[in-house]
């Protein structure tokens, strides 16, 4: 029972990271209807920036904040420089652009920082918290994720800028007619998504190790989480992320072992999607004839 509980709680820690990344995906999806396949690699790259700073002697939290800010800028620049050009392109063209960004970030990270795995420090001590079920570190990961999600919620719910971004995501033409600078809102969305991704990257890197490929699998889980929750629903993305984290851990521990857990987790998700094609909390498709 104790081991089971531990698996569930450890799953929640991973799930919190998937949830954050899934939220970043949903944010870009809502305004552009594209899934950013490069989100994971962007986050990985951000994590390397943090690692480089910490390695150079910068205190953890200063490096953390600088990384989040730098990632925000990178996100904005990518939107303005690359994504804007394919705004009206067919969906598969955009997919190829995302793949291009993915391989570029991956390759550049490997080139600058080498492909050898690195230890990424955690700001939290590793001793157990409240008995043997969860380490302070895992609890810290969950706590940071919850904090990020709460801040985002407050931002979107209560600030004029958040409102402008929501309006833009829902109806760009109407937003423009209200005087909102729609182009900047999209860039801002990319910046925010990149910043959230950076937090997720730094959290997961302290659970696993840091290497250029560390987020490819995580991104797949995040996409699955976003789809499972209903791709246009931020709340669903968070629930989906947590559910997948737990599911993955339990599968790995009790059912199929770590080798096949990715496959099985995906199979389960696809099974769910076949019965609920718009995800657990997604809106039903309405097709205009």
């Amino acid at each position: 029972m104790e081991a089971f509980l531990h698996q569930v709680l450890a799953g929640l820690a991973n799930g919190a990271v998937y949830a954050s990344l899934a939220l970043a995906l949903v944010m870009i999806y809502q305004s552009t209807h594209h899934i950013n396949f490069a989100q994971g690699e962007m986050a990985m790259f951000s994590t390397y920036l943090a690692w480089a700073m910490i390695n150079a002697g910068v205190p953890y939290w200063l490096a953390f904040v600088s990384t989040v800010l730098a990632s925000f800028v990178i996100g904005v620049v990518i939107e303005r420089a690359v994504i804007r050009r394919v705004a009206n392109a067919p969906v598969l063209t955009v997919v190829v652009v995302f793949i291009a960004l993915l391989v570029i970030f991956n390759s550049v990270a490997g080139w600058i920082f080498s492909y050898t795995i690195k230890v990424f420090p955690s700001p939290f001590p590793s001793q157990p918290l409240f008995g043997p079920y969860i380490s302070t570190h895992e609890a810290g990961v969950v706590g940071i994720s919850v904090l990020v999600l709460t801040l985002l919620y407050l931002f979107f719910r209560f600030t004029p800028l958040g409102l402008a971004m929501r309006a833009t995501a829902e109806n760009p033409v109407s937003a423009r007619l209200a005087g909102i600078r729609v182009g900047w809102m999209l860039a801002l969305g990319w910046g925010l998504a990149a910043a959230i991704g950076a937090v997720a990257g730094m959290m997961i890197a302290s659970i696993v190790y840091l290497d250029p490929n560390m987020l490819s699998g995580v991104l797949l889980y995040a996409i699955a989480a976003a789809l499972l929750g209903g791709i246009d629903n931020p709340f669903g993305a968070v629930v989906g992320g947590l559910a997948i984290g737990v599911l993955e851990n339990l599968m790995g521990a009790y059912v199929v072992g770590t080798e096949l857990k990715l496959t099985v987790a995906l199979a389960v998700i696809i099974g769910v999607l076949i019965f609920r094609p718009t995800g657990l909390f997604g809106r039903a498709f309405v097709t205009r004839v």
């Binding site: 394919v86 063209t93 190829v96 291009a100 080139w111």
Partner: peptide, 19 residues
């Protein structure tokens, strides 16, 4: 050193020049 970065740039170039 970074062949895939070059590959990615090729991809972007093709997509931008020949949409």
């Amino acid at each position: 050193a970074a062949p895939w970065a070059v590959y990615g740039l090729f991809l972007l170039a093709f997509v931008f020049l020949m949409p």
